[in-house]
Design a protein around this nucleic acid. Structure first.
Lengths: 341, 341
DNA sequence: CCTGGCACTCGGTAGGCTCGACTGCCAACC
DNA sequence: GGTTGGCAGTCGAGCCTACCGAGTGCCAGG
């Protein structure tokens, strides 16, 4: 599609622009090693690259900057060309992080998002694994005094799910008693322990109306997992977004999107489903407010089946080789870490 | 300290500057109702106000803008002067929010931070109540397979605390068995159920070494509550920070602070301890990166004893009457809501 | 003590100028 | 034909100047 020289020139332009954020002219490219041609030749080639949509000039008599298509070519050529590496300091940081890491899953994921953000100097997103596949280790119903009760389930992957219930009232206006709650709790435990969260089945009735009612409500609460999205997204280094753009309006827009966790989750999932690792600009990821942004994602595969997702969000002129390397390394080590438990 | 006319002029300057973000000149003040004097007189008064540190001019021949001291006077005079009101639409929004609100505590607090942010158009912070006073309703130790186990405690205020443990190894290299875990779990439950989280006491020994060891570790894990800060801070509308300043560097700094939850929690707690409702500028809140920011806080008092904290963070030239009104209303209604359970 | 008037200051905007970094094109060359 | 050096043309950035207007400080008169 692009002959070798055009490809080399395009690569040079992208690399220079990523580094300097300034439009790059033919002379700069001519000086770059790897391109053996005079500036005039390069001018000719660049004008073709522009006609084909890989480059644009902000105005006549300025250098050129890559279009989203240009970045796309660069990223694609990168894969075969040899991926980037983290420098020694960064590798040490990752290593020390994962040997140090311990404790709650949520805490670790949150810290991981900050690590990834530090490594890339962009905003990072970490999404916890869905626990469809996890099995229930323990479940109970706990009355909190008053009319409310809590259904608490401990899952095999170390997460805890909880749902609030309103206790039904007796005819006399008093909430159902501790005995009923305890009965429902043991019944629930008997039925659910060991089951995967995705297939709760139906709890067998006890015959006692109040208990069965509570049992049904508990099952329904556990099944309706709308709290899933809520606690499972970790955004690290959002403030770094402010470095990436100098228009405050752009920063505002991007931060606004980051606050909508649902959108972020959907975005990353969608990219993985489409088999993409990098999405450049609105055409590829589909979010107009993020028109000037690219997304780099990777799945996190733990031991058993599906894992979580990590990604970074930055300006389209981000350092792709480094971003890809960072995301790859972190996803791999995080996966291994989660495998261990 | 300030005669009536100076006070009126200062108020007028503050109000105008809050609205327009432009330095305000003597003529504007003269036109404002509530100040009966010619622009020349006002000029004289303003020059005194400047000498006394309430106003500054960005440069000669420009209008004046309030200093932090000026804002302080404005806010103080506000209290006696009659606090601001939310408009009808906003009051309706608050009302509908709290009738709609239900479900998990954390989810509700997170939504509340977004509500408060919408009302004030600034960034809002909500801190969950500390659960020193809450009592333990249920506690158990759950093995997760492998070497890890989880201590899970359900508290009377509806929160769930969990801690990860590494199971000790037998001499043969196998982790301690399910029997030991179960024994420790029932023992722990027997000892802790009904106790306030602040005073765990010491669990009585069983005599069996493996069980006692696990018991000790569980107690230690529960006592070392370092996860408290982690899940208990909710920041809403951080993107609105980008509207408040037009220097992208300022936005960056403020967002950076917001990411350090510990700093935010300490800040709000500190202000409440000092009995402050409003802290204006670095002199009052002590954080240099937030030099151009003010903080408005209010405690949230639920039924029993100490509650959480809510607050907003915005530029020093925020609309104080509205901010105070919004924080007051939300804190009050949130407190009532939490009382109900 | 207040007020109107006047001189002065200074930031912001617009126009004109130069400088420099580009490009596009063309003629010459390999 | 592809490549190259040279040259004219373009346009933004930076700088200077002039001008306008908002606003102040001061003063003399009521």
């Amino acid at each position: 599609m692009l002959d070798d020289r055009k490809a080399a020139i395009l690569r040079a332009v992208v690399e220079e622009y990523i580094e300097t954020a300034q439009p790059v002219g033919s002379q700069h490219v001519a000086r770059a090693r790897g391109v053996q041609a005079s500036s005039a030749t390069i001018r000719n080639e660049m004008s073709v690259l522009e006609r084909d949509g890989y480059l644009v000039q902000p105005h006549t008599s300025a250098g050129r900057i890559p279009t989203d298509k240009g970045y796309r070519f660069f990223v694609d050529s990168l894969q075969s060309w040899g991926a980037g590496q983290l420098n020694a300091g960064q590798r040490a940081e990752v290593k020390s992080f994962f040997t140090r890491a311990h404790g709650e899953l949520e805490h670790m994921l949150s810290e991981t998002s900050q690590l990834l953000s530090r490594l890339t100097d962009h905003t990072a997103v970490v999404i916890a694994p869905p626990h469809e596949a996890a099995t229930i280790r323990s479940v109970q119903v706990v009355g909190l005094g008053g009319r409310t009760a809590l259904v608490v389930a401990v899952l095999s992957n170390g997460t805890v799910e909880k749902r609030t219930l309103e206790l039904a009232l007796h005819e006399d206006g008093e909430p159902v008693g501790a005995g009923v709650v305890a009965a429902a709790s043991t019944r629930l435990a008997g039925h659910l322990t060991g089951r995967p969260v995705g297939q709760l089945g139906v709890a067998p009735a006890t015959g006692e109306a109040a208990v069965d009612h509570l049992l049904g409500e508990s099952m329904a609460a556990l099944a309706g997992g709308h709290s899933e999205e809520a606690g499972s997204v970790f955004v690290g280094g959002a403030s770094r977004m402010a470095n990436a753009f100098d228009a405050v309006a752009t920063v505002r827009q991007v931060l606004g999107i980051l606050e909508e966790q649902f959108v972020v989750v959907t975005l990353l999932r969608d990219l993985l489903d489409r088999g993409l690792t990098v999405a450049i600009g609105a055409d590829e990821h589909g979010l107009t407010p993020l028109a000037e942004c690219s997304v780099v994602v990777a799945p996190v595969r733990g031991g058993n089946g599906e894992g979580g997702t990590i990604g970074i969000l930055g300006p389209t002129r981000m350092n792709y080789p480094q971003a890809l390397a960072a995301v790859a390394v972190v996803s791999q080590r995080l996966g291994r870490r989660m495998e261990e438990g």
